[in-house]
Design a binder for these strands. Structure first.
Length: 307
RNA sequence: GGUGGGGUGACCGAGUGGCUAAUGGUAGCAGACUGUAAAUCUGCCGGGCUUUGCCCUACGUAGGUUCGAAUCCUACCCCCACCA
């Protein structure tokens, strides 16, 4: 499918990506592919700021509500799924537009990761349980021994390096070099930016809104399904803070503020990623302006680049 | 009014004579990032400079003791607790 450019709208949370994507529907017959590692989880709608029912009715969305909160999803999984959706969208004669906040997911789709050999799920689970109990320092040392090419990065990345080395017999860095994958799309990046004070204001408003609209109740009901505290779907900003409150570890009135702080930090990391990690053509647009106006501008620029 | 406790860098909070521009933590800033990524990590974080170092300013305020004070003494201001 490479060859045909795919518009990829990226930017920090709360910058207004969805609104712009929806406005783009006035210019193209399009379908949206959401590259968001949290919105793949079912039911956690408020906490992950999913597009509303109405918005989804206006334009078909892909990549939402894919798995149960207890299930593990991943960048590689996303890349495969998204390649399929995109092919289907094209077959329908429409334009796929990738919209995302999860940098790694976008990269997995646009550049490809590496062909990961099958990892035995049972061995993986028991290894996970084992490494979870080790100190970060031990994990790092172990990862370095198993994979001389290990580039560091903390507990989680060390655990990943250990897992790959042990379960495949070859170090992670080996696979990364020897089994490179190709991207599934040829991306045309549009980076939405907004001055920091504006973004922080939007984030604060959104955090308060989430609580007001029932975030805590939503999380409580998902919790009531009996997921493990460490369930993959429960590990997200907003959800975490709600869980802390529900477990009596945080006063209710501090929830919104804590969410805003964590979101701000996350938005910063996203901006760093989009500033340095994106390969390919990039159009930066100031998202302070109305979505319709941005959409027109983006559509026009795209037509110039890819008539 | 009395007694006791306390006032430390944006915030919380260690530090009780030199090794202190001051441990930690938080917030903030910058960065990394190949299948958990809303994750996981790293660096910086009083100001200035001719930046392996130097100079200012700083631990409520004002004095004092000392070669040397955030640390000791005196007075004052403010906060908290209890007693009146």
């Amino acid at each position: 499918m490479a060859g045909a450019k795919v518009p990829v709208l990226v930017g920090p949370t709360a910058v207004g990506k969805t609104a712009v994507a929806l406005a783009l529907a006035a210019h193209w017959p399009l379908e949206i592919v959401s590259a968001d590692s949290r919105q793949v989880y079912r039911r956690l709608d408020i906490g992950t700021a999913k597009p509303t029912r109405k918005e989804r009715a206006r334009v078909p969305h892909h990549g939402l509500d894919l798995v149960e909160p207890g299930a593990r999803y991943s960048a590689g999984h996303f890349a495969r799924d998204a390649a399929g959706w995109i092919a289907d969208i094209r077959a329908r004669g429409r334009l796929p537009v990738v919209v995302g906040g999860t940098g790694l997911y976008v990269r997995a789709l646009a550049e490809g990761l590496f062909h990961e050999p099958a990892l035995d799920p049972a061995r993986r689970r028991s290894l996970d349980a084992y490494t979870a109990r080790l100190e970060p320092l031990e994990l790092l040392r172990w990862a370095g021994r198993l994979d001389p090419g290990f580039r560091g990065g903390g507990r989680q990345r060390a655990a990943r390096a250990i897992e790959v080395a042990l379960l495949t017999g070859y170090p992670l860095s080996h696979w990364q070099e020897a089994a490179r994958a190709k991207g599934a799309i040829d991306p045309w990046y549009v980076v939405l930016t907004v001055p920091r004070p504006v973004l922080q204001q939007r984030i604060a408003t959104r955090a308060a809104e989430m609580v007001r609209r029932g975030l805590i109740e939503e999380v409580a009901s998902v919790l009531a399904e009996g997921h493990a505290p460490a369930a993959p779907g429960l590990d997200g900003i907003g959800i975490r803070e709600a869980v802390e409150y529900l477990h009596g570890r945080r006063p209710r009135e501090s929830v919104a503020d804590a969410i805003a702080v964590a979101t701000r930090q996350y938005a910063k990391r996203q901006q760093t990623w989009f500033r340095h990690q994106l390969g390919g053509t990039v159009l930066a647009v100031d998202a302070t302006r109305p979505p319709e106006r941005l959409a027109a501008e983006i559509a026009e620029a795209f037509a110039r680049v890819y008539p």
